[in-house]
Design a protein around this nucleic acid. Structure first.
Length: 158
DNA sequence: GTTGAGCGTT
């Protein structure tokens, strides 16, 4: 028999959405964790190294205010594998730069869950809160925006 | 020059 068919089924070519439930999809699609309560002085590098022990960090995103220009103190950590994200979840309330950070599964939007109820402002050209996102590159997939990356000289991934 | 809100893209 020469015709050895490849029953590879390849798999991922198919739409993974149908096979994955919304819950799994959220985790698989996210592969990232939301970090809160981060010190304003903490940089992506610190967060990356802190989470690096959980797994391979793909990218670290820090949210900052574009209008004010002041960092919000929140960041997102994306892992190259889901394992890293799950490990990061266990790092919740871990001590980072002397501050306990909050780690939660990434979410697109969260209902009012804050100490102070924040009613959304509607109307007016106010485009939401207007947050600028500062991206930090790790490994080298894409280049960060802004004038020059914040990469500190002499910084080695390992 | 401060402070503490809660969700982002390649």
């Amino acid at each position: 028999m020469v015709g050895h068919m490849n029953l590879n089924t390849s798999s991922q070519s198919n739409s993974t959405q149908s096979l994955l439930t919304p819950e799994e999809k959220a985790e698989a699609d996210a592969k990232s964790v939301y970090v809160g309560n981060v010190d304003y002085g903490a940089t992506a590098e610190e967060i990356e190294q802190h989470f690096h022990g959980c797994g391979s960090v793909a990218r670290v995103t820090i949210l900052c205010d574009k209008f004010s220009g002041h960092p919000k103190g929140f960041a997102y950590v994306e892992f190259t594998e889901k394992d890293g994200m799950q490990n990061a979840l266990a790092m919740t309330d871990s001590l980072l730069r002397g501050r306990q950070i909050k780690v939660d599964p990434k979410r697109t939007n969260r209902p009012g869950l804050s100490t102070t109820n924040r009613p959304p402002f509607r109307g007016r050209g106010g485009r939401g809160r207007g947050n600028v996102i500062v991206k930090y590159v790790y490994g080298g997939g894409f280049r960060p925006r802004g004038r020059g990356a914040r990469r500190r000289p002499g910084f080695a991934p390992y």
